[in-house]
Design a protein around this nucleic acid. Structure first.
Length: 703
DNA sequence: TCTCACACCTTTGAAGTGG
DNA sequence: CCACTTCAAAGGTGTGAGA
């Protein structure tokens, strides 16, 4: 606590931290002070038992570090599929000078639509071939440094470690989550671009696709069906993707965008909402000449003919009953009267690439006709309950009771900015046992894996909301439901980790080295600094850090064995990264106050977001990746134990990224640590390289 | 639960046309 | 050369049958 209290970060609302070094942030501090569980909780992704095959020299040190960390506060537990969580040691506090100048604010576009879906428990279809998200994830950024360049990313992390089932018209926990799918970060195709450019338009991530194909080679985001997820938006101030790993991540989470991945819609209401709002599903609308309409007409026709027949056969007396019943059913099933109304501007929700100019449209949809229409669309009891929303589904009053609850703090106009910190101490982590030990089913299920999330306010807040939204039984409310956004998501940078949008990936296609160019905005301006950096080309992409190469390759659609790339070699890296990231991840606090007011420092993008009424910003950092090591592999692990320790590493001085030391005790100084790290990393890299080659994977464009 | 083919629809971009 | 229109191909959707 003392440590926390003296952490300057606590005082600031905007801060920078080194991405690869866990930081202790306000979030943590606040949580601690408030008696919350430690916000961060490093999750280390480990391969299935026995599958972690690291070269002795490489693997042992890593594992030793990992395991040895126990004394220093590191703690491992099994997470779902062999993931481990590690508690990191306290890190240094941020230095004032490390603070960034900009103060980005992010607003979720089509928020009303998202909320509409959220009320019923958003479902996103995932298919083998990949499906887009609907509503599309779009945001508007403000407060960016006009001149500076930013890379905008998006990823989707599990909201908890539970598996769900749709039972009795509501989503219920059906057990523990299945093993995590490889995490992928989607880099907006326009990245990097100047703040001015980003602010001039709506940033649309509609190209991101979801899949359940674990061996996906397109770079799609892989999800587990029947699991709950939370999309996250990241802003990274960096002029080159090569610097991404060393840059500060500001992560924004919009609670209303969470959803359950499904291979087939479970909730008819959601289906209807999709049909009503998604232009591509227009053919299924009741209005118009789509299939649905035809079906409806056919049905009506048959009904009528049937009735007539009945009349003839039985006389007019009984038809009434039968008729009514029939139509009643029919009406219910196929045509929500409401939905018949033409959906508002479809384009508002699903516009083409350039959203920049669609603002007006987007804005307009609010008063779209649907509002009322939709809310009344299906009519089950639940909906009716929410009826208040009918009037203004989109209205700020927004209505739904649940919304109201959560939100008093709900400021729809201003997303809360939270900077996640990467730092955390074992002590802190442990301590927080705090009261809030609410244990819910999920938690209990996975209790081994995570520290008891606290949830108290957070959980309560979140849980309430979400549970409610998903129609969970009251009993579930308050249970650990959304505590794992981070914990279960180690920051796995591997193969398809990064998925760059079409243009991006296309540009990168087939050329590892050129990826750098890609990152530079399509121009082949390799970052010389990066290039100059030591041996990092595990994959043959000279200037590109391993993980970047991986993700790039993935996005390029290059063959990458899903698992091959995942475990053996990459693993090293993953482990490190994961550990680091996990630090931030695990338990994200959802304390309203914290969420709303304090920026949170998060270590890894895969940490869990907090639930903030409106939007939450978390700052996260990519896993520690010593620059020098570009190779990615296990270097990171080395540091003190996991992760965090990783030396701030030599960042490109030119980089705007803040490479400060944040936290780790050792971080101090780049100098010493750097050197050692560099050497060690190099050696590790060599080892890894060997492994890599043996793995034989097309991962890299060059041999 | 998942996968697949399907019909229906929107989006995209090339080609054509006119000023 | 530019703006606009037309058109076909590409691609996104939910459906429903089958596994």
């Amino acid at each position: 606590m003392n440590f926390l209290m003296r952490d300057p970060v606590i005082q600031g609302s905007s801060m920078a931290y080194h991405p690869f070094i866990p930081h202790r942030g306000p979030e943590f501090a606040m949580s601690a002070m408030l008696g919350h569980q430690p916000p961060f909780f490093p999750a280390l992704a480990l391969p299935p038992s026995g599958s972690l095959s690291l070269p002795g020299a490489l693997g042992k040190p890593i594992m030793d570090q990992l395991m040895g960390a126990a004394d220093t506060g590191l703690h491992f537990s099994s997470l779902g599929h062999q993931a481990a969580a590690a508690h990191l040691r306290p890190l240094k506090t941020l230095e004032p000078e490390e603070e960034v100048e900009d103060d980005p604010k992010v607003h979720l576009e089509a928020k009303e639509l998202w909320e509409l879906f959220h009320k019923k428990g958003t479902e996103m279809v995932i298919t083998k071939s990949g499906r887009r998200m609907f509503p599309p994830f779009k945001v508007r950024c403000t407060g960016l440094d006009k001149k500076a360049k930013y890379i905008l990313l998006m990823d989707i992390v599990a909201a908890d470690d539970c598996r769900y089932k749709f039972h009795n018209s509501r989503w219920m926990v059906a057990g523990k989550a299945d093993p995590e799918m490889p995490k992928r970060m989607y880099i907006h195709p326009d990245s990097p671009a100047t703040g001015e450019q980003w602010m001039s338009k709506v940033v649309n991530f509609h190209k991101l696709k979801l899949t359940n194909n674990i061996s996906d080679k397109h770079g799609f985001t892989i999800l587990n069906s029947m699991h709950k997820y939370q999309p996250r938006f990241h802003i990274v101030r960096a002029n080159d993707i090569l610097k991404l790993p060393y840059s500060t991540f500001r992560t924004y989470v919009f609670p209303e965008t969470d959803f359950i991945a499904v291979t087939a819609y479970q909730n008819d209401k959601i289906t209807q909402l999709k049909i009503d709002h998604n232009p591509f599903a227009k053919g299924f609308r009741d209005t118009g000449n789509g299939r649905r309409e035809k079906r409806k007409q056919l049905a009506l026709q048959s009904m009528r003919s049937y009735e007539e027949q009945q009349k003839k056969e039985n006389g007019a007396s009984d038809d009434s009953s039968g008729e009514q019943a029939s139509f009643k059913c029919f009406g219910q099933a196929s045509s929500p009267a409401v939905s018949t109304v033409g959906p508002p501007h479809l384009k508002d929700f699903c516009d083409s690439e350039e959203d920049s100019d669609d603002e007006s449209k987007d804005g307009n949809h609010k008063d779209g006709p649907d509002s009322s229409k939709i809310s009344t669309t299906t009519g089950d009891g639940k909906d009716h309950e929410a009826s208040p929303a009918k009037g203004h589904p989109f209205g700020s009053s927004d209505s739904t009771g649940r919304r109201t609850q959560k939100s008093q703090a709900d400021s729809r106009q201003s997303p809360i900015t939270v900077i996640s910190s990467t730092t955390r101490s074992g002590e802190e982590l442990k301590s927080p046992s705090l009261d809030q030990s609410k244990t819910d089913e999920c938690r209990s299920i996975s209790k081994d894996s995570f520290m008891p999330l606290t949830v108290q306010t957070d959980s309560a807040h979140m849980g309430h909301n979400h549970l409610h939204n998903f129609g969970f039984p009251p009993g579930l409310t308050g249970q650990q439901f959304f505590n794992h956004l981070g914990s279960a998501h180690p920051f796995l940078l591997h193969p398809g980790q990064f998925n760059m949008g079409g243009a991006f990936s296309n540009m990168a296609a087939g050329m590892g080295p050129l990826l750098a160019a890609v990152s530079s905005g399509g121009v082949s301006t390799m970052d010389t600094a990066s290039m100059a950096s030591p041996p990092q080309s595990l994959t043959g992409a000279p200037g590109l850090p391993f993980h970047l190469q991986q993700h790039v390759l993935a996005s390029q659609g290059l063959a990458m064995s899903p698992f091959g790339s995942l475990f053996p070699y990459p693993y090293t890296y993953m482990a490190a990264a994961a550990a680091a990231s996990s630090a931030a991840s695990s338990s994200v606090h959802r304390h309203p106050f914290l969420n709303a007011v304090r920026p949170r420092l998060r270590y890894s993008p895969y940490s869990l977001p907090m639930t903030v009424p409106d939007s939450t910003l978390l700052t996260t950092a990519v896993p520690p990746m010593p620059t020098v090591a570009g190779g990615g592999g296990g270097p990171e692990l080395k540091a003190d134990g996991l992760v965090p320790a990783s030396p701030a590493v030599t960042l490109d001085s030119s980089s705007e990224v803040t490479s400060h030391s944040s936290g780790i005790p050792s971080a101090s100084p780049k100098a010493c640590a750097e050197k050692d790290a560099a050497n060690e990393l190099q050696s590790i890299q060599r080892l890894v390289s060997g492994l890599e080659s043996s793995q034989d994977r097309p991962r890299s464009g060059s041999p």
